[in-house]
């Protein structure tokens, strides 16, 4: 990793600026931002953030107490794309939106999606495997997209490990997209900022939602229950159990990003139970 850049970002080097800090000011951003300029009272500090001296950001190399993540069960994903459009739908009208679509009714439509499903084939007929493969930001414990960001827009939250983009700081230089080995970040062509999965941070803490709905939109939508959500640092969580019991694995561990999201492999039931 780019250690010199990480060193520059350490708190010792960068004291907070006057007037900055949590809740102050609103960046100009780029693009059409009526939504950003909605006349709202200044946001209050969220719980746990404390005052000016308590940082939202995780330090580089800091080990977090809590790391929220998704676990994707490839054993039951049928490639229906529910996660793709339920995410799009939630986020386009949320604090991460709008999510633009270019040429929405024309040739080569292309829009901003935080989660995509690709389908791969492995093997040769008749021993072919068809694998439906959803992928969104894996909220790495050591995310390469964070230190490369020249404005500090890319950051990892200390309290739960979610990696986010601060749209008000992002200048759309796309360094983070180059750094991410998973291709999980997309430039929103209209706003010219990077966007990515937020783990529905605006759902999971929203006390206006019923408790059972405080989970990412994709997790709630998935008809086969192929998406699990929880704290991978908690050994008793659903996600930790699934990883342990089902042999969950990380993508491309050789990149040393320690992705928090993991995948559960296919499991083939060879015989009907009881048959010899």
């Amino acid at each position: 990793m780019m250690q010199w850049l990480k060193d520059l970002m350490s708190p010792d080097l960068l004291p907070p600026l006057p007037g900055e800090g949590w809740g102050g000011g609103r960046g100009a951003g780029t693009g059409s931002h009526e939504v950003m300029k909605a006349a709202v009272p200044p946001p209050q500090p969220s719980p746990g953030r404390g005052g000016r001296n308590a940082s939202v950001r995780a330090e580089p190399d800091e080990t977090l107490a809590k790391q929220l993540a998704l676990v994707i069960d490839l054993n039951v994903c049928v490639g229906c794309h529910a996660c793709v459009t339920s995410c799009k739908q939630w986020n386009t009208s949320g604090s991460a939106g709008p999510l633009a679509d270019a040429q929405p009714y024309g040739a080569n439509p292309t829009g901003t999606f935080f989660n995509r499903v690709q389908t791969y084939e492995a093997g040769t007929f008749p021993a072919t495997q068809t694998v439906h493969f959803p992928k969104s930001c894996l909220h790495c414990e050591d995310p390469p997209c964070v230190p490369v960001c020249p404005t500090g827009a890319s950051y990892k939250r200390k309290e739960d490990g979610i990696v986010l983009v601060d749209y008000d700081k992002c200048i759309g230089c796309k360094y983070c997209a180059w750094a991410c080995p998973y291709g999980a970040r997309e430039l929103d062509e209209e706003r010219q900022v990077m966007t990515k999965c937020t783990l529905c941070v605006d759902r999971i803490y929203d006390e206006h939602l019923p408790k059972e709905d405080r989970k990412p939109a994709c997790v709630k939508a998935c008809p086969t229950g192929a998406r699990l959500f929880g704290d991978v640092k908690d050994p008793d969580s659903e996600v930790s159990k699934a990883i342990r019991e089902r042999g969950g694995y990380q993508l491309m561990p050789e990149w040393e990003t320690s992705p928090a999201n993991q995948y559960l492999p296919r499991h083939v039931t060879q015989q009907t139970a009881g048959q010899e």
Binding site: M9, P11, L14, P16, L17, E20, G21, W22, G23, G24, G25, R26, G27, V35, M36, A38, V40, P43, S46, S55, V56, R57, S93, G94, S95, A96, G97, T151, G152, A153, Y155, L164, D166, Y167, D168, K169, T198, V201, D202, Y205, D206
Partner: peptide, 13 residues
């Protein structure tokens, strides 16, 4: 550069 985010992802738009 400030280290703290400006945009609050929990902010209701």
């Amino acid at each position: 550069l400030s280290r703290e985010p400006v945009h609050d992802p929990l902010d209701a738009p």
